[in-house]
Design a protein around this nucleic acid. Structure first.
Lengths: 239, 239
DNA sequence: GGAATAGTGTCTTTGAGACAATATCTA
DNA sequence: TAGATATTGTCTCAAAGACACTATTCC
């Protein structure tokens, strides 16, 4: 609660506020699979080690927690306009060697083009690590990443989240590819199509086609679609 | 992240830590439906008004955030041994008139017997309010309750959470009743049975039966079951 | 035996998954 | 036109929902 506090009145000495920060797991898709984007820490402790993008809450600058995350992503990683979701909050005495701390964890998904754009904007480059080859992360960041991967996998299967990892317009084949890369198993395109069409979550975009082809020869291009909603739509079944 | 912080070095003056507390939505089932348990605030602001159970994080006493919630529930509401789940974190400048604050919200489900036991333990009595007749709650507690109700409803449909709102042993009829009261629609007992049995989440308890009967006349008693796992088991479909 | 609820079986419907068949596009 | 995909259609299977039927229990 807020301000309710009972019994032996807590004095300032007893009540030291914990440090409060936000951390964000940035996901992106490489041709080989899901990756997490890391940045080197710019100060002690663990200076130079790869970590999640994060920063302290600044009450004087941020109106809400969401503002905090967006500010941190923008200022430290050049990331803007991505799908962002609160993951959970981790707090305790042992997660940071400097003392009791709280981290409100988020995750975001970045279409490929935004990775490059962000790097350019912030004048830095990410370390894009496959999720099964994560380095030893400082603090409890490994746990946060694990929770984020779990959430992402679940949500890819029962929502239109895959659409947020793609360019604004995409083909079924691309959507299917996201699905398969994240879930690590193949999906029948027919089922996927039926599901998405029945749910009426996609909008055919113009009559334009996509060049297509993977190099040797060009093939029939797929239709382009766009998500109708700017937020993921949830299904009540799992695929 | 934790300690990473960039650019124009933030001075102590710029960086005022937000107040950090936990708030918990306590759910219980009355014969008429889902209720939330509220307590009167014991201090300003909003002294005397019904609110969620909550309290500040005490770094010197609590090892983790979970410890904080359990301590607060125990000390302020006499609640122990219930299923507890983190709901989300709400933070911003406007949610509490005293200034920037963060609330890590949880929800818990209480079997009926635990409501009375808790009240006795803490020497108080809850205000048990039907979720569609909530009073005007202080701060952003209405929003927190709304999020909790949404989560609870979703989870009742795809997990064994209903079992945690019942006594340690229960009949199918009782499980079904939880389902129906929370979801507000009727369910076919046959489907529910098949689902729970196939998932193998229940354990038949002894050969004991339950008295049964609702007053006028006694009927065939149902078998008693117990949940196998101390945590909710999730299904991949919705019912 | 009769009332009332518990527990089981069957049929229907819906949707996922597999896979076959057809449609299109470009070099 | 050939090669490579895209898109559509069909069949099978699994599970939910509806509902009928049987089993128990207590009065």
């Amino acid at each position: 609660m807020d301000g309710v506090d009972g019994e032996p009145r807590v004095t300032e000495a007893d009540y030291e506020k914990p440090d409060t920060s936000v951390d964000c797991v940035l996901f992106t898709l490489a041709p080989e699979g899901l990756r997490v984007l890391l940045l080197p820490r710019d100060r002690a402790p663990h200076e130079g080690r790869a970590t999640l993008v994060g920063g302290y809450v600044r009450p004087k600058e941020d109106g809400t927690l969401d503002d905090t995350v967006r500010r941190v992503l923008r200022d430290k990683a050049g990331v803007e306009g991505v799908y962002l979701e609160q993951l959970g909050t981790f707090g305790g005495a042992d997660r940071d060697e400097r003392g009791w701390s709280i981290s409100i964890a988020y995750f975001a998904v970045l279409p490929d083009a935004l990775v490059a754009a962000s790097e350019a904007r912030a004048g830095l480059s990410f370390q894009a690590v496959p999720i099964d080859q994560l380095p030893d992360l400082p603090f409890d960041h490994a746990r946060i990443v694990a929770a984020a991967v779990e959430r992402l996998r679940a949500k890819v299967a029962y929502s239109t989240l895959p659409g947020f990892m793609l360019e604004p317009t995409f083909t079924f084949a691309e959507y299917k590819a996201v699905f398969e890369k994240v879930l690590g198993r193949s999906v029948d395109q027919s089922s996927l199509r039926k599901k998405l069409m029945d749910a009426d979550v996609l909008e055919e975009v113009g009559k334009e086609s996509l060049p297509t082809g993977r190099g040797v020869r060009a093939n029939r291009p797929g239709r382009l679609y766009r998500l109708r909603k700017p937020e993921p739509v949830l299904f009540d079944r799992n695929l």
